[in-house]
Design a protein around this nucleic acid. Structure first.
Lengths: 116, 116
DNA sequence: TGCATATTCAACCATTTGGTTGACGATCCT
DNA sequence: AGGATCGTCAACCAAATGGTTGAATATGCA
C-alpha cells in the first residue's frame, strides 16, 4: 500500500472531504447520509467520496441499494511518515517511543474486552 | 499559529514543493539554488516558494540580492495533529507518552541514586 | 557609471477542480 | 409490474492551478 502522496495530500486539502473523514471516524455511513449535513448536491458528495476512495482514505461497499463508506485510516500512514521527516513535533526519542508502544501493546493484550 | 489546513495540505500536495521542502531540510537555500535541480523556470519555482511561504511551511529573508529560504517545520504541526485523530499509526496519546517519558526519567534518576 | 546577477511582476495559456443539472441503472417495497 | 429510493454518469461551467515568456526592480561589482 504505497499510497501516492500527491493524491493523499490533495484529497486532504479540501475541507468538505476532511469533514467527511471526521464523520466516518464515528461510524460507517451510507452515501446519502454522508451528504445530508452539506449544502451541496448528492453528486458533488459522490465525487468527493470517489476522490477519497481513490486516495485510499475510504473504502466503499455496496450492500443492496446502499453503498457503505468506511474510513481507511492506514492510507494516512505514508503521509504521516513523510511528515515525520520534518520537525520536532513528533516523538524525538524513537527508542523511548518504541518502549512506550510495547507497554501499550502489553496493556491491550491483558485487556480482554478490548475491541479490534 | 493556527495554520490553515486547506493551504497546508494543498501546499504539500505538489511533488515539486515536497521536494523543495526536503532540500531545505538539509540547509537554508537561495531561490536560485532551490531552482537549480528542477526543469522548470525560475519563475515557477518562485511561485512554489510563495505558496510554501503562504502556508507557513517556509520563511524567506532577503539579504542583499539573495533571498534565503528556510524550512519552518512547525507549520506541519496542525496538519500532523489533525491526522493523529485518525488511525493508530501516530502516537495515539501524546500525553500518555509524555507521562511515560517522565516515568522513564524518574527511573533513570533513581537508578543513579540507588540500586534497582 | 554601467553591467551582471537575483528575484519578482504581469500577462497569458492549458489543464484540473469543484460545483451544477438532468437522465439513467439498480434495488427495494407493495 | 410499478413506483420510490440510492447512487452514478454525462455534459457543462467558473474558478483555481501550474506552467510559460518578457519586462521590471533591486542589489553587487569593476
Amino acid at each position: 500500500m504505497v499510497a501516492n502522496l500527491d493524491i493523499v495530500f490533495s484529497a486532504l486539502a479540501d475541507p468538505t472531504r476532511r469533514a467527511i473523514l471526521a464523520m466516518l471516524l464515528e461510524d460507517d455511513m451510507a452515501v446519502t447520509d454522508v451528504a445530508e449535513p452539506f449544502q451541496m448536491s448528492l453528486t458533488a458528495i459522490s465525487k468527493h467520496l470517489g476522490i477519497l476512495a481513490e486516495a485510499g482514505l475510504i473504502s466503499r461497499e455496496k450492500r443492496g441499494r446502499v453503498i457503505w463508506c468506511k474510513l481507511e485510516p492506514d492510507a494516512m500512514r505514508s503521509a504521516s511518515v513523510w511528515m515525520q521527516g520534518f520537525g520536532q513535533f513528533e516523538p524525538v526519542d524513537l527508542d523511548a517511543f518504541e518502549r512506550f508502544l510495547e507497554g501499550e501493546l502489553a496493556e491491550d493484550d491483558s485487556a480482554t474486552d478490548t475491541q479490534r
